[in-house]
């Protein structure tokens, strides 16, 4: 089968030029629904980290791990539903399924990273897809963040079942998204662009009781 593996790939930078205005998936929601200000009383804070670079890696764990270590300097999470970060915490890799990982890097890096990964992987059997345009990352932080999640997802978010460094794909408000916990009181939701408005309004509604604020 290895003879049939494509040795060429069509790689192009999907990020628009600087003069073309790019809007986050939540731009319309901010415009229509608005964003409640963060105040002293806010016990949950929502923050969008738009325009990050998202890459889906597929392939055998050993080959991918080697290439990722070489290019990014830290390895793939080997255990199901776990998350690894680089030293600065800016880049992360998450286990999605036994042969699939999600890499999130600061916006603009993903194009170069994809090229370097493809170079490192050579003619191995793998796939890399740039999904940056299809999803966005929302951070929820604060003492009541867990309460808010408990209203929205059937997944057990108790610290015993969901320690720091875990990440799962699960149901959230009847939609699905990736829920991850990089810090003690910080949660990240990776959601599809098409669900962004719905989830945003759901979170505002669920967070109203905790005077949720949206950081710009």
């Amino acid at each position: 089968m290895s003879e049939q593996t494509a040795t060429w790939f069509n790689l192009y930078d999907a990020r628009p030029e600087a003069e073309v205005p790019a809007e986050s998936p939540l731009a319309w929601s901010y415009h229509r629904t608005g964003r409640p200000a963060v105040s002293q009383k806010s016990r949950v804070v929502l923050r969008e980290r738009a325009m990050l670079g998202h890459l889906i890696l597929r392939g055998g764990a050993i080959v991918l791990d080697e290439a990722v270590r070489q290019v990014l300097g830290f390895g793939l999470p080997g255990r199901p539903n776990t998350l690894t970060h680089d030293d600065g915490g800016e880049r992360s890799i998450q286990w999605l399924s036994p042969d699939e990982w999600l890499v999130i890097v600061p916006g603009g890096e993903e194009f170069v990273l994809e090229g370097r990964l493809r170079e490192a992987l050579g003619d191995a059997h793998y796939a890399i897809v740039n999904v940056s345009g299809g999803q966005t990352l929302i951070e929820i932080e604060g003492e009541m963040a867990r309460e808010l999640l408990m209203k929205s997802t059937p997944y057990d978010v108790h610290p015993d079942a969901f320690p720091v460094g875990k990440g799962v794909t699960t149901v959230f408000a009847k939609a699905n998204l990736i829920l991850r916990r990089p810090g003690e009181e910080r949660w990240e939701l990776v959601l599809r662009r098409s669900f962004a408005d719905y989830c945003y309004r759901w979170i505002l509604d669920a967070g109203a009781a905790y005077t949720i604020g949206v950081e710009s």
């Binding site: 199901p80 539903n81 399924s97 036994p98 059937p154 997944y155 799962v168 699960t170 149901v171």
Partner: peptide
Amino acid sequence: MFLIYCPYCEEHREEEEF
């Protein structure tokens, strides 16, 4: 809650996911 064990995720998940 009705939980089903996923042998790949190695944990019990809500039935809604299956």
